[in-house]
Write a protein that binds this DNA or RNA. Structure first.
Length: 679
RNA sequence: GGGGCUGUAGCUCAGUUGGUUAGAGCUGGGGACUCAUAAUCCCUAGGUCGCGGGUUCAAGUCCUGCCAGCCCUACCA
C-alpha cells in the first residue's frame, strides 16, 4: 500500500549563502525523501526561500537594490547550491509570492474568527535616521548590569538578558544614530487559548521525538503561554496586514505558511489540488527542522494549522547542530564552510555519506572531524563498497553476468534479508544504523572475492565459467549495496546502473539478483579524499571570512603588541585566587602633593559612608591632584597596609601603563557606587 | 537559576524487554595476496562499561546520589 507523503525542510533565509551546517538538514531530508520514493511511496519534497523581515530590507538598502532583486539573486544561488549537492526538491518557492500572501490571509481570517488576535501598544526603539524600528540585533550598547560596552540588544556576554530599551547609550547599528523610544500598535496571537489543545496534542500525537515532548511539557506548557507578537509596523519588507494598514505580518508568521504556499505552486504546475495534500487525513506531512526553531514548529505552527483547518504534522523531525572538530563552526576558524567553497575541494557524495553515518533520530549535535571524515569516506566508500566493483569490473566486462546465480555461501540472501532492517532504520531517520548495517554487508562481500581468487582463474582458460560466477556474485553484492545506499548516494547508484545496464528504481530490486546481462567497461566511481584538500577548504574559508570582515569594516583596531612583549601574561590563576583580591570602587575625596616626594600623591579614598583610606600613589607625573578629586577609581582594598616614608599607605589605586607620565588610572562607568566590589 | 541530553576500548559508536568469557569499524602491531583507488584478506593488541550506593540469584542494562561534558532558556523555565 503506497503512502502519500509531503516533506519539507526549513526555509533558508535569503540573507546569506548555504553552508555545510545548513546542508545537514537538506541532506537528511533529501535522503528520507529519496528513500520513500525508492520504496514506491508518493513523496514530494517542498521548500522555499524565506524572504521577509528587517534584515533583508536593510541588506537590500545597503546594496542599493530592491528587496525583490536581492531575494531573486539569493534564491538562484541557494537552488544552485542545493542542486549540486543532489538535493532534489519537487518545488522550491519563495515566501514572497502571491500564493503565500493569499494563504496568509486565510490563516489570518481564521485566527481572527477564532478570536485569537489581540492588539496592544508596545514601545520599541526606533532609528530616526534609518526611519525604521530596530529589531534587537540592530541595537548595541552598554550592558545595564555589568557595564560592558558594545553589547547586543538582548543579552550581554556577562550572561544577563534584558530589553534593548534597557541598554545604556544604545546605538543603532544601521546608522549609528541614537534610537528613540517610540510607541506602536502590535497585534498578538493569544496562544494560551489553545493551551489545553496543545498539551493534548503533545501528549497524544506521535509527531514529536520524546525528548522534544519532554522539553515542551517541562518548559512551555507548564505555565501560561505568552502572547506572540505577530506584527511589525512599517517600514517592513513583507505582507501588509489587510485589516490593519501600516502593519505587516512578522516574518515568522508567513514563513511556515510558505510550506503550504510552495505546495500550492507545485500543485498548480502538476494538476493537483492543495487540499489533497494539506487537508487530507491520508496524506502524511513531515517537517525537518533544526532544534533552534523547535518552539515555532511544535507549538505555534500546530496551533495555526489547527485553527486554519489544515493537516497537523505527522512528524516534526528535529536535528541538532553541526560542529567541526568538536567546536562550533566559526568564520574565524574557517570552519563555516560555504557550499560553494566545499565543492571546489570535495565531492558532495562524501558529505552526504558522512552525515548519514552521523545522523540519528535524536536531537543531537553532530561533529564533523576532519580526520574522521576522510577516514570514513576512504575506508567505507572507496575501500569497501566501490572496491568491490572495481576489483572485478575488468574481468566481467565482455563476459557479462552468469545466467544462473552461483553459490555464494548465502551472502546475497543474507543481504536481501537485511533490507527490511535497513529500511526500518531509514524510515526512523536512523541513518547511522542503516549505514552500519550496510557496511557490515560490504565487510562480508570483500572476503568472498579474496577467497575465490578470481585473478588465478583469469590465467586458466579452463576456469572462465568459474571466473564469471565470481564476478556475478561480487557485482550483485555491489548492486545490493548501491540500492541500499541509493537514498544517500544517488550518483553511485547511477554509476552502478551504467555498469550493469539496469536502472535502479525500486528498493525491492535488492531481493532478486541480476543475471545474464552484459557488463559495461568499468569506470572509476569515486576518488579517495585527501585530508590536504580539506585543509585547503578551511584555509579558503578563512580567507573569505577575512575579506568579508574587511568589506564590512566597522572601526578597525591596530593595537601594538609591544605592551604584551614588555610584560608577558602572568601564570594562570583560579577564580579563588582572584577572589582573594578585594577590588573596590572608591571616590577620591582628597588629593594632595607630598612635600619632598618625587612621584607620590597622597590620596584620601572614600568607600562610602565614613569608611576612608589613605593611599600613596606614584602618579604625580601623570595627574594633577585637583583633577582627581571627586573621581571614582578602583582600589585594592585588602592590601596589607604599608609604612612609607611619608605615612601609612592603606591600599593601592589600580592603573595601567609603564610609569612616570604614562600612567592611566582605571575608571568605572557611570552608575557605580563607592564601596562596590569589583567581580 | 531552571530544563533537556550524553558519559562503553586511542577514535567513532553498537549493546534489544536486566542473563553465559562486553561487541563492530577505524587506528596500532604481525603476516598474506596482487584483481582493485598505497585498495583487500588473515591474525592480534586494547575496556575498573564516568564515580559511589541500592534493588536482584543475576546490571553496561532498573532506582538513587554525585561528578563531567554538550545544548536550550520565546522580555528570567
Amino acid at each position: 500500500m503506497s503512502r502519500q507523503i509531503l516533506v519539507t525542510s526549513a526555509l533558508p533565509y535569503a540573507n546569506g549563502p548555504i553552508h555545510i551546517g545548513h546542508l545537514v538538514e537538506y541532506i537528511q531530508t533529501d535522503i528520507w525523501v529519496r528513500f520513500q520514493q525508492l520504496r514506491g511511496n508518493q513523496c514530494i519534497y517542498i521548500c522555499a526561500d524565506d524572504t521577509h523581515g528587517t534584515a533583508i530590507m536593510i541588506r537590500a538598502r545597503k546594496e542599493g537594490r530592491s528587496e525583490e532583486e536581492l531575494i531573486e539573486a539569493m534564491s538562484h544561488q541557494h537552488q544552485r547550491d542545493f542542486h549540486r549537492f543532489g538535493i532534489n526538491f519537487d518545488h522550491y518557492g519563495s515566501t514572497n509570492s502571491e500564493a503565500n500572501r493569499k494563504i496568509c490571509g486565510e490563516f489570518w481570517d481564521a485566527l481572527r474568527k477564532a478570536d485569537l488576535i489581540t492588539e496592544r501598544s508596545i514601545e520599541q526603539l526606533y532609528d530616526p535616521d534609518a526611519e525604521t524600528f530596530l529589531a534587537d540585533r540592530f541595537v548595541r550598547g552598554t550592558c545595564p548590569k555589568c557595564g560592558r560596552t558594545d553589547q547586543a540588544g538582548d543579552n550581554c556576554t556577562c550572561g544577563h538578558t534584558y530589553n534593548p530599551t534597557d541598554l545604556i547609550d544604545p546605538t543603532s547599528t544601521l546608522s549609528g544614530a541614537t534610537p528613540v523610544l517610540r510607541e506602536a500598535a502590535h497585534l498578538f496571537v493569544q496562544l494560551d487559548k489553545l493551551h489545553d489543545w496543545l498539551v493534548d496534542w503533545v501528549n497524544t500525537s506521535d509527531a514529536l521525538q520524546s525528548e522534544v515532548a519532554n522539553y515542551l511539557k517541562g518548559h512551555f506548557l507548564a505555565e501560561r503561554l505568552r502572547d506572540w507578537d505577530i506584527s511589525r509596523p512599517a517600514p517592513y519588507f513583507g505582507f501588509e496586514i489587510p485589516d490593519s494598514p501600516g502593519n505587516y505580518w512578522y516574518v515568522w508568521f508567513d514563513a511556515p505558511i510558505g510550506y503550504i504556499a510552495s505546495t500550492q505552486q507545485w500543485c498548480d504546475g502538476h494538476g493537483e489540488r492543495l487540499d489533497h495534500w494539506w487537508k487530507n487525513e491520508d496524506c502524511e506531512v513531515h517537517h525537518f527542522i533544526g532544534k533552534d526553531i523547535t518552539y515555532f514548529h511544535t507549538l505555534f505552527w500546530p496551533g495555526m494549522l489547527k485553527t486554519a483547518g489544515y493537516s497537523l504534522p505527522t512528524k516534526v523531525h528535529i536535528h541538532g547542530f553541526l560542529n567541526v572538530d568538536g567546536k562550533k563552526m566559526s568564520k574565524r576558524d574557517g570552519t563555516l564552510i560555504s557550499a560553494d567553497t566545499y565543492l571546489k575541494y570535495a565531492n558532495p557524495s562524501y558529505l552526504r555519506y558522512f552525515y548519514a553515518t552521523k545522523l540519528t533520530p535524536r536531537v543531537e549535535d553532530l561533529d564533523l572531524g576532519v580526520e574522521e571524515f576522510a577516514e570514513k569516506v576512504n575506508s567505507d566508500l572507496v575501500g569497501k563498497v566501490v572496491n568491490l566493483a572495481s576489483r572485478v569490473g575488468k574481468f566481467a566486462h565482455g563476459t557479462g553476468l552468469s545466467e544462473n546465480y552461483p553459490d555464494d555461501g548465502g551472502l546475497f540472501e543474507a543481504a536481501a534479508d537485511a533490507g527490511d532492517e535497513i529500511a526500518k532504520a531509514y524510515e526512523a531517520c536512523d541513518y547511522s544504523r542503516a549505514m552500519r548495517r550496510i557496511m557490515e554487508l560490504a565487510d562480508a562481500a570483500n572476503p568472498f572475492v579474496e577467497h575465490a581468487k578470481p585473478w588465478e582463474m583469469k590465467k586458466d582458460p579452463a576456469r572462465q565459467d568459474e571466473l564469471r560466477d565470481v564476478c556475478t556474485v561480487a557485482l550483485n553484492l555491489f548492486r545490493q549495496l548501491a540500492i541500499y545506499l541509493a537514498p544517500v548516494l544517488p550518483d553511485l547508484t547511477t554509476q552502478c546502473s551504467e555498469l550493469l545496464g539496469e536502472e535502479i528504481v525500486s528498493w525491492d530490486q535488492s531481493r532478486t539478483p541480476l543475471l545474464g546481462t552484459p557488463v559495461a567497461k568499468f569506470k572509476r566511481m569515486l576518488d579517495r579524499l585527501q585530508t590536504e584538500e580539506l585543509q585547503k577548504m578551511i584555509e579558503e574559508s578563512k580567507e573569505l571570512a577575512a575579506e568579508d570582515a574587511d568589506a564590512n569594516a566597522g572601526p578597525t583596531f591596530n593595537d601594538s603588541d609591544q605592551p604584551l612583549k614588555d610584560e608577558p601574561l602572568a601564570d594562570e590563576i583560579t577564580i579563588d585566587d582572584f577572589a582573594k583580591v578585594d577590588l573596590r570602587v572608591a571616590r577620591v575625596i582628597k588629593a594632595e602633593h607630598v612635600p619632598d616626594a618625587n612621584k607620590l600623591l597622597k590620596l584620601t579614598l572614600g568607600l562610602g559612608g565614613d569608611e576612608q583610606r589613605q593611599v600613596f600613589a606614584g602618579i604625580k607625573a601623570a595627574y594633577e591632584p585637583e583633577a582627581l578629586v571627586g573621581r571614582l577609581v578602583v582600589m585594592v582594598a585588602n592590601l596589607k597596609p604599608r609604612k612609607m616614608r611619608f605615612g601609612l599607605s592603606e591600599g593601592m589605586v589600580t592603573a595601567a601603563g609603564p610609569g612616570n607620565a604614562d600612567v592611566f588610572i582605571l575608571g568605572v562607568d557611570d552608575g557605580a557606587l563607592p564601596g562596590q566590589r569589583v567581580h
